[in-house]
Design a protein around this nucleic acid. Structure first.
Lengths: 117, 117
DNA sequence: GGCGTACTACGATGCCTATCGTACGAGTCG
DNA sequence: CGACTCGTACGATAGGCATCGTAGTACGCC
C-alpha cells in the first residue's frame, strides 16, 4: 500500500454539541489521561497509542483513550493497525473558549512546581 | 455576643502548595459541585451551606462541600452554627492563572447552550 | 436549662472505575 | 500462508464515591 489507508472500523465520537464540561473535567482529572493530553498538545499532531509509554498495561491504556474519546477530548482514527489520536482542540475551543489553553497551562505550571514533568 | 464569633472548630484545608490540578478538576466534574461553585462565584461573597437549595439531602450536601474544601476549591469557616463557604479564587489564580475564569465561563456557556442555567 | 437550627458522623448501598490478565481480531510484511 | 504488531474484548477485582437515613454535636436564643 502507498498510504496505510483509513480502516473501515470507525469509532463512536460525541458530536460537538454533545460534549459536556463535566465529562471533560472528569476525563482530565485522571493523572494518566492528563498526561496523555499534555503529550498530545505538546506534539501538536496525531499520535498513535503505542507512542505513549505509560506505566500501566495496554488494556488500561486502551481504557483511558476510550474515556478521552467518549468525553470528546480526543478524536481517534484507525490507520492500519495503528490508532491515531488527536486533540479536538477546535471543538473544545468553540464550546469553551480558552479552557483548553488554561488547563494545559495549569498542568504545565504544576509540573514545574511539583517537579514531575 | 456582638458578632457571631468564629468558632474554635476549625476545618482542615490544603495549603496552597498542596492543591492539585487533578483534585480540582475532579471536584468540579460533579454537576452538584460545579453548581455550588458557580453560585459562589456569582455571589462574589461567602455563603452558608444552608443558602444552597440542592436536590439532595443535607448529608450529601455536606459531603460535596467537604470534597470542595479538601480539593482546595473553597474555604470553609464556622460562624456560630452556620458554616460559611468562600471560593479560594486568590489561591487558584496564583497557582493556575486564568483557569477558574475559564472554567466558570465554560460552565456559563454550557448552561446557556443546554438551557439548564 | 431547654429548645431549635445548622451541620456532622457513621453505616449501608449500589454504582462507577482503574487496574490487570488472557484471549482474540485486524492489518502489515515476508 | 504464517508470523508479528497493534489494539480490543471480556471477566475479575478492588477501591472509590454519590446517595441516603438516622443519630448526634455545636451553637444561639429564650
Amino acid at each position: 500500500m502507498t498510504s496505510p489507508a483509513v480502516s473501515s472500523r470507525d469509532l463512536p465520537h460525541p458530536e460537538r454539541d454533545e460534549i459536556r464540561l463535566e465529562g471533560v473535567l472528569h476525563a482530565l482529572s485522571d493523572p494518566m489521561r492528563l498526561r496523555i493530553v499534555r503529550e498530545l498538545a505538546a506534539a501538536g499532531a496525531e499520535l498513535s497509542c503505542s507512542h505513549f509509554d505509560l506505566p500501566v498495561t495496554k488494556s488500561t491504556t486502551t481504557h483511558h483513550f476510550r474515556v478521552l474519546r467518549e468525553s470528546g477530548v480526543i478524536r481517534q482514527v484507525y490507520q492500519g493497525t495503528a490508532k491515531m489520536n488527536g486533540l479536538r482542540a477546535d471543538d473544545l475551543d468553540d464550546l469553551f473558549p480558552g479552557l483548553l489553553d488554561a488547563l494545559l497551562d495549569a498542568a504545565a505550571r504544576q509540573a514545574v512546581r511539583i517537579g514531575s514533568g
